[in-house]
Amino acid sequence: MKDTNKKWAFIFVAANLVLFLLFFAWPALLGVYYSLTEYNGNVATFIGLENYINLFQDPSFYKAMSRTFLYTLIGVPLVYITSLFVSVMLTSNHTKGKNIAKIIFFFPWLVSPIVVGVLWRWMFGESFGFVNFVIQAIGGNPIPWSSNGDFAFIVVLFATAWAGTAFNMLIFIGAIISIPRSLYEAADVDGGSGWQKFWHVTLPSIRSTSFLVILLAVFNLMKEFPMVQSLTNGGPGTDTTFIVQYIYETGFDQMRVGYASAASMVLFVILLVFSLLQFRFAKGGKANE
């Protein structure tokens, strides 16, 4: 009996196991190997740690990495706050037309990253964009949305928040409506204001959901590529070139596969460290639940 179960268990996971070996383990090991070679697509020559040494002296790598960190650092709280805010509004007793509003907020989920990029590029075009048109109409000077690195970065953040709200909003709404009513009623008895209720009841109750949303958002933002490629293509200059685009450009456009793989490995280690930290925190969070 036990043995047949073992066989069945194996059958049940077989597909995923094979896929895991083919498309995760194999490329990961291959990546480690490539990162130790000079490989231009034709022949790989073993060069030891040279790629890593060069990488850590390469200002463009540092720039891509630090831009990615900055983007994650600002983008994750932004996504978190906007989606939580929207969810609270959508679960409040004091709002009407929730269903329509919910559909509107959810709509960006249907839009692909490429189109998100197009959309925001079109809104924030310097000469023909709607936003600059409005700014000029009310008497301001047009803002260099795409030729100034900081403004371009802001546009990327807007687009991120816009596109990221929908999914996280669903998760939050699910969590908020499952908070026991009695907790709020108790707060009412104590005469708590709406803000106090949010701070002392809602927020602590959705703690584990918050961790989940943050974890997902961090991974999503760290590997952002398609949306930015179509929005700014990493520009102006390399001001919005994030790490995955950097890896793509070095590895495919310039065909420096070894060097790009070394960058991949560094990114992997960073993500790994981050997840381990995150899981420690999340465990702490669950203990209180």
């Binding site: 310097e126 000469s127 260099p144 795409s146 030729s147 700014t232 520009g235 102006p236």
Partner: peptide
């Protein structure tokens, strides 16, 4: 300098051709 030439064409990939075609 953003007066003689718009910086965005080079730094941000704005389309020079369509800017000229717009007549401005």
């Amino acid at each position: 300098d953003n007066t003689i030439m718009p910086k965005a064409v080079w730094t941000a990939g704005e389309d020079a051709s369509s800017m000229f075609k717009s007549g401005r």
